[in-house]
Design a protein around this nucleic acid. Structure first.
Length: 348
DNA sequence: AACTTGCACAACCGCGCAAAT
DNA sequence: CATTTGCGCGGTTGTGCAAGT
């Protein structure tokens, strides 16, 4: 499967690319466009495997690839995004125009990770090292083990999470969430705000901001777990609009339902009432079916617990959940309730 | 000057997913 | 429905260079 052994084929070059090879690849792609990587080397007259060509193009030759030193702002952004997304470099790179996932991964491993460690911050959890508190209340998995992706279920979950995260965290929207995070940090430094209405987001660090709002949602049997996986895989949400000045956004939750499915009315709009609570159950209460809900400053800030949590399923497998406020759990619940014919397609 | 160490960068590699067959 | 193929992702390794000893 895949392209195992791609680099081992006799006669194919490995290692650093020459200027001549770069030119051949560039000229070919300019003429024929990207794609067809497997056959590209032959057509372009390159003695490389297609995979190597794709990598060279994506990380080096592609127009718009920004080269050179990362700015302090970019580095800060990487740290912020890593705290939310973990080692999901491709998603992180979408928030740094011109930077490739490979480049970001490199700078993280070679510089930022060590910098955090020197500052006494665990680069995996983004928590101070002297804090023995686990990252989440249901996190029973050793984080380093998790990082290494040592079990199949975790690897699979990471894949799933990527998909979910990519859809739940569209480019640009993280800025809002990040702003909120900064706000929360400021809050803890003495800048009390009335918008923080009694929730427990008062600590510094991801752990305090990231809570599992309705763990019961994922308390499931083996078969339910499997079902949930597939449902989660098919779920999505979409930011319809985002007004940074007003700090509001409209989120569409749902999929392109089977035309025969009447449970998915189009154009269904639900106005989120102003609520003080942070919990996803609020969304659960309000959003009983897929649709669009409007998040304004108070309720969105109150619910934007951006988190990457490890959920332990009934079957012992552990998978990740990205929670943006209650949106994730809400979406998940919606999918759980949907008839089978409504699953499996993605809105766009 | 020679050697070691650390850093930055580029590329390799294996795996899993989804579309195609 | 099973298998194959193409691709993208993330972890790891290799290499060159600069700074330190």
């Amino acid at each position: 499967m895949g392209t195992i052994g791609c680099y081992d084929v006799e006669g194919l070059r490995k290692g650093a690319w020459t200027a001549e090879e770069d030119k051949k690849l560039l000229v070919y792609i300019q003429e024929h466009g990207e794609g067809g990587w497997r056959s590209l080397p032959d057509k372009a007259g390159l003695k490389r495997c297609g995979k190597s060509c794709r990598l060279r193009w994506a990380n080096y030759l592609r127009p718009g690839v920004k080269r050179g030193k990362f700015s302090a702002e970019e580095e800060h952004k990487i740290i912020e995004l890593h705290a939310v997304l973990g080692n999901r470099w491709s998603i992180i790179s979408r928030h740094l125009p011109g930077r490739t996932d490979n480049e970001i991964k490199n700078i993280w491993n070679s510089r930022l990770k060590k910098r955090l460690a020197k500052m006494g911050i665990n680069p995996v959890t983004h928590m101070p090292n002297n804090t023995s508190k686990p990252r989440s209340k249901s996190n029973e998995l050793d984080l380093n083990q998790h990082q290494a992706g040592s079990s199949l279920s975790i690897s699979a979950s990471a894949q799933l999470l990527n998909k979910v995260a990519a859809k739940l965290v569209p480019s640009g929207f993280l800025d809002t969430l990040k702003s909120w995070q900064y706000g929360q940090e400021k809050l803890t430094e003495g800048d009390e705000s009335s918008t923080n209405t009694g929730n427990d987001n008062s600590g510094i660090g991801i752990d305090e901001r990231c809570r599992i709002e309705s763990p019961g949602t994922m308390n499931m049997s083996n078969s339910a777990s499997t079902q949930s996986h597939s449902k989660m895989a098919s779920m999505s949400s979409q930011i319809l609009s985002h007004d940074p000045s007003a700090n509001t956004c409209d989120i569409k939750v749902g999929n392109t339902c089977n035309p025969e499915c009447t449970m998915w009315p189009s154009g269904n709009t639900l106005e989120m009432p102003r609520v003080a609570s942070t919990s996803s159950w609020v969304l659960d209460e309000i959003v009983t079916k897929p649709g669009v809900f409007h998040c304004s400053e108070e309720n969105w800030q109150g619910t934007s617990s951006v988190s990457i949590e490890d959920y332990s399923c009934g079957d012992g497998s552990i998978y990740d959940i990205v929670g943006i406020g209650g949106a994730y759990d809400t979406v998940s619940n919606i999918y759980t309730q949907l008839p089978e014919e409504c699953n499996g397609t993605i809105i766009h």
